[in-house]
Design a protein around this nucleic acid. Structure first.
Length: 470
RNA sequence: CGGGGUGUGGCGCAGCUUGGUAGCGCACUCGCUUUGGGAGCGAGGGGCCGCAGGUUCAAAUCCUGUCACCCCGACCA
């Protein structure tokens, strides 16, 4: 009966556990080119759910989707000095095509600020064209030295938003709105991942931005994951690309811009924030399949009862599927669903049908209860709501319990071995930031004392959250 | 780029020291028995031993070179 565990236990080797879950839950495979990945149907279904939820929120802020090209003239990248300096080490450049060498090499987009702005320059003429709010769902390529599937891949999928505003205040407010209403809301209410919203230090800022806002989450091993960023670009790109407009007074002015993105990295965050030694745990609001009705064993009326449950659950709005593959051992199927993180399992067999009930097995609360067939749909919908909250509460408690208030660099580094440290920015500063970097520890973000997002780096009484990161 | 390690069926590994023509577990196929927490038994299929040279009657094994990948340090969603 005692079998070796399906997955390497987290406590034994976390990175190994991560690789194991991805393989066993059939999320993805490594591609043939280093750093590339094949996202398998279950992994992609999760991504599609993320896309849907994020896309709805983006549109609610007034942005519209558009598409910009994969290939960008190399010269475009060079127009913004900091930007090219930041990205040049990781660019993939096409020098040959159509059987001959190209006159001007073409880069595969690492991000689209340059090509987007070259068109914004044409589209924006008047203050009446502002704000211009555009979002692009795409793939991008950044040649990675040390790839890690979903977390840091050479090619990844994401959305990148690009906006133009008439004033700095408007741009700043919009960058903040994306952070709050799109990213943090999605991560907390759908992914059930608590995030700290903060401001990046100069060192951690996006290449070409004047301010980078971030959502930082803690993984189960205590490391931080940057789940999403929203940047204020100031007028840097506007000046490089000539994105200017006539104000109501007839003056020429450069636009103020933002850009912001979340990527398939969130899938990695989902895995590492919620997964346990039995596999994935997908929050109900995200789960592509929320409930699976399993025929445990054939018998009188079993298939009919199972089919009936599926149709009742579907009618109640539960994303639901039937598993009647009784040619495969029950234990195998049950474990497979656990690995994939499906929130609720309903087990029906001859015993249950005879008694007029079914077994409700919950992945997140790890409970198993007998329920009458008549009350099952209500019990499932209630369980889905409760377990969404339970998962969030658990992650929040873990983060709180693994964050230490410290007063020195040394203590911060020590705390970062197992979690995060909170230290005043005055005590740390840029020198401290450089010092802890030697130990592989970085400032994840700056916060106000009340947890609010700072407007400036030099506000008094700021706190730095420091830790190891992916 | 610096340090450490590994390349053997789809996956994970043994075999190498002391050369003799490749094996184990999982997975896969077929059959029977099973089916309430990774089923059992039996029978099968599948390997350029990373690549290229060399030594030898004979190389997965010894020698030389080379490539790839993994882990740890400087950058990134």
């Amino acid at each position: 009966m005692a079998r070796p565990p399906v997955l390497t236990p987290q406590g034994q080797d976390f990175p190994r556990w991560y690789q194991d879950v991805i393989a066993k839950a059939e999320l993805a495979d490594n591609g043939p080119v280093r750093g590339t990945m094949v996202i398998r149907p279950w992994g992609y279904a999760i991504w599609e759910r993320m896309q849907r939820e994020v896309d709805d929120r983006i549109k609610a802020t007034g942005a519209q989707n558009a598409y910009f090209p994969l290939f960008i003239p190399q010269s475009y990248l060079q127009r913004e000095a900091e930007h090219i300096e930041g990205f040049s080490p990781e660019l993939a450049v096409v020098t040959h095509a159509g059987g001959k060498e190209l006159e001007e090499p073409v880069v595969v987009r690492p991000t689209s600020e340059t090509i987007v702005n070259s068109f914004f320059a044409k589209w924006v003429q008047s203050y009446r064209d502002l704000p211009l709010l555009v979002n692009n769902w795409s793939n991008v390529v950044r040649w990675e030295l040390r790839p890690r599937i979903f977390l840091r891949t050479t090619e990844f999928l994401w959305q990148e938003g690009h906006t133009c505003h008439a004033t700095q205040a408007d741009a700043g407010a919009y960058a903040r709105r994306i952070l709050d209403e799109v990213y943090a809301d999605f991560m907390e209410s759908v992914l059930a991942i608590p995030v700290l919203r903060g401001r990046k230090t100069r060192r951690e800022r996006f290449a070409g931005a004047v301010n980078t806002l971030t959502c930082e989450a803690m993984m189960r091993d205590g490391k931080a994951l940057q789940m999403g960023t929203s940047h204020e670009l100031g007028q840097n790109f506007a000046k490089s690309f000539g994105v200017a407009f006539s104000t109501a007074d007839g003056e020429q002015s450069y636009v103020w811009q933002t850009s912001w993105g979340v990527s398939t990295r969130m899938v990695g965050g989902l895995i590492m924030c919620h997964g346990d030694d039995s596999g994935l745990r997908i929050p109900p609001r995200l789960a592509p399949t929320q409930a699976v009705v399993m025929v445990v064993k054939e018998g009188d009326g079993v298939s009919e009862a199972a089919a009936q449950l599926v149709s009742e659950l579907s009618a109640a709005g539960v994303r639901c599927e039937l598993d009647a593959r009784t040619d495969t051992a029950f234990g195998r199927r049950a474990i497979d669903r656990e690995l994939k993180g499906i929130p609720v399992r309903i087990e029906v067999g001859p015993r249950e049908v005879a008694e007029g009930n079914a077994m409700l097995v919950r992945r997140i609360s790890a409970t198993k209860e007998r329920k009458s067939l008549a009350g099952l749909t209500a019990a499932v919908t209630e369980a889905l709501v409760q377990d969404q909250d339970l998962l969030f509460a658990e992650a929040l408690a873990r983060r709180e319990g693994s964050t230490a208030d410290v007063g020195s660099f040394g203590e911060a580094v020590e705390a970062a071995a197992s979690g995060w440290a909170r230290i005043t920015w005055a005590a740390l500063g840029h020198e401290g930031e450089a010092a802890i970097a030697e130990q592989g520890v970085s400032v994840r973000c700056l916060l106000r004392a009340d947890g609010g997002v700072p407007e400036r780096d030099d506000e008094p009484e700021l706190f730095a959250i420091v830790g190891r990161s992916y």
